[in-house]
Nucleic acid binder design. Structure first.
Lengths: 348, 348
DNA sequence: ACAAGTTCCGTGTTCGTTCACGAAGATAGA
DNA sequence: TCTATCTTCGTGAACGAACACGGAACTTGT
């Protein structure tokens, strides 16, 4: 069992002290170019990897990570889940001197985003996790972070114009594509398929449109069944009325694709009838889980929000503490959850 | 930011030295009952958690873990996957002084199991990971381990009569149940459904029977479609003939459930016809993946063998190094893989 | 009362790093 | 040539825990 090479070994090979090696490792100068190169060569020759245990033991510095996510009204709501994943990772990494400082903004008030972002900038964290919900404000924030050299990782979505060390998202188009496959697989002939968007402002909910795009792509290119497709954009209040209107027009609805976690509203609506369409939606919030388990929703696609928070935290950790280059693009799996496999499902 | 409590803090509170605290922590005696209890109380009062970094830094002992799994003919075969998961975990945990000693036995020769098991016993490892494939031999082995106080964790299946600190498996019945749901969801009327077992010795492949059981359970209790169900047990060579025979009898086969990874044989068979039944099977081996991606298999259920190896290793680590009580029963999720989500799927 | 053994406990070194401190040697200014 | 400053490097004390070693106090036998 060959032992790992240590700083002391490098020092001896180079004929210097560990202090000198340490200085080149941390590139804090005060070393002649000549010995620097000699040491650097030995380091790469012997493939030196610092012992992270000893490293974080000796380093008394605490690394503070700030997270900026939408505030979650309650424990079950969607945005509490990334938070859970972040907290789990941080508590696992606690011994490495990681501390978390969570900040929350109100989704309906973008000014609060800027407000909290400024608080973060004031606190000068070592890294930031954020959900770039308010695009314009997020971009301003990341520019500040870029300028100050503070690394950040995106959760849930990403911004093309910024420079995160990494982002972790789900491929929305592909998830819509998958949804269409599951819908189409469950119906054998030409059918009436409804796409429901439950949101106040569809044009600003880009990922919902991407899911729709994937969904339509599949139906147009793969299946040969020539389904009739009806789109229903609606806010929460009018959804029942709109569905009733749709039913009046097409007589029967065979399948419904709800592009976000509001699928419980749709499943609840169809509960009043004898026969319900196949229903597929997103996210394992408890209202959806209940309906899935009672057989009123067929499939839920999971975005793995806990996992996103967890992975994002580890990415930031690897970058800051281990100083490794991390994969910049990370995609979560698109998990299919049914009544039959939810019992064993673990979303992290 | 409250600092973690250290051994020194405990010692000071108890008015003793760190040596004494250390002795009670490692229960190696030489401490009076009185001070022992005082220290124990402080430890639990302040919820002391040893700093695992410092701990494994100071402890120069290497922990060797032996793994005993069926030998894998090639990189792609099923049994190389748990091995991958184990190795990944061990390499992550390398700094903690974990070393792995892998052993392999031949599935078709149970004597090799005993042979390798004896080698393991001779090497006196600190922990063992094993797939208890040969029941009788495995039982004998675990009894020896019990006697010597060597902890072990089961992968893939478990033995009721033994005392592992933990096992990690998939619920076979439930996976069959899920398969039936996916089959039934995809066909709208009374259909001909075939269950195919590809194995030399069905009676000794208990999990295949359990998968069948779950499958039948679902069809009997949940659906009302009164399908006709045909069971085909076969070895690899005769499978085409048997399917041909079946086709001759029932005219059309609407769906096929293959109870293990040999689903590629069945999908390959149906490739010669214009129309194929819905096909579902198990495991992400490359032959299956190819057929899934080319649209000749509808669903693959994944046992997550890499994850099983990974989790099992961590369980053993937590038990040996962190001395934590670990959950004894662990079930992997039953993941549904399709052509549309396999791209982003990560099995660990 | 004294040597020998027990019981109970403290001290000091080590693990691989980090980092503050300070000491040489080189260079420059006077 | 003598101080002053800079560059380059070594030393030693942490970090929190493990563990070997040895020392004091107490018991026992004679």
């Amino acid at each position: 069992m060959k032992k790992n090479i240590r700083i002391l070994d490098i020092a001896q090979k180079a004929g210097v002290s560990i202090g000198t090696v340490d200085r080149v490792l941390h590139q804090r100068g005060e070393v002649s170019e000549e010995t620097r190169e000699k040491i650097l060569k030995i380091i790469s020759d012997f493939n030196y990897r610092p012992n992270i245990l000893a490293s974080s033991l000796a380093s008394k510095k605490v690394i503070t990570i700030a997270s900026l996510t939408p505030s979650a009204p309650d424990k079950d709501s969607f945005w509490s889940k990334p938070q859970d994943g972040i907290e789990k990772a941080v508590s696992q990494l606690g011994h490495y001197g990681i501390r978390l400082q969570p900040y929350h903004f109100k989704m309906e008030n973008t000014a609060t985003f800027t407000q909290e972002a400024n608080k973060i900038l004031e606190s000068v964290p070592d890294g930031v996790l954020l959900a770039p919900w308010a695009k314009r404000e997020a971009l301003k924030f990341t520019r500040e972070l870029d300028q100050r050299g503070i690394p950040y990782v995106f959760i849930d979505s990403t911004l093309k114009e910024s420079n995160p060390i990494s982002f972790i998202v789900q491929d929305s188009v592909q998830s819509g594509y998958l949804a269409a496959k599951l819908i189409d697989y469950g119906i054998t002939q030409k059918s009436n398929i409804v796409i429901v968007h439950v949101t106040k402002d569809l044009q600003n909910a880009n990922h919902l449109l991407l899911r729709e795009k994937g969904f339509l792509d599949y139906l147009e290119t793969v299946t040969g069944k020539m389904h009739r497709i009806i789109k229903i954009p609606s806010n929460e209040k009018e959804i029942a009325d709109k569905l009733l209107g749709c039913l009046a027009e097409v007589k029967s609805i065979d399948a419904v694709f709800v592009t976000n976690s509001k699928v419980h509203l749709v499943a609840g609506f169809f509960d009043q009838f004898d026969h319900r369409p196949n229903i597929i939606g997103y996210d394992l919030i408890s209202k959806n889980i209940d309906l899935l388990e009672s057989g009123k929703i067929d499939f839920l696609l999971n975005q793995k929000p806990e996992s996103q928070g967890f992975v994002a935290t580890h990415l930031l950790f690897d970058h800051i503490v281990r100083k490794e280059k991390v994969k910049s693009a990370n995609y979560t799996s698109i998990d299919i959850i049914t009544r039959e496999n939810i019992e064993y499902y673990s979303s992290i």
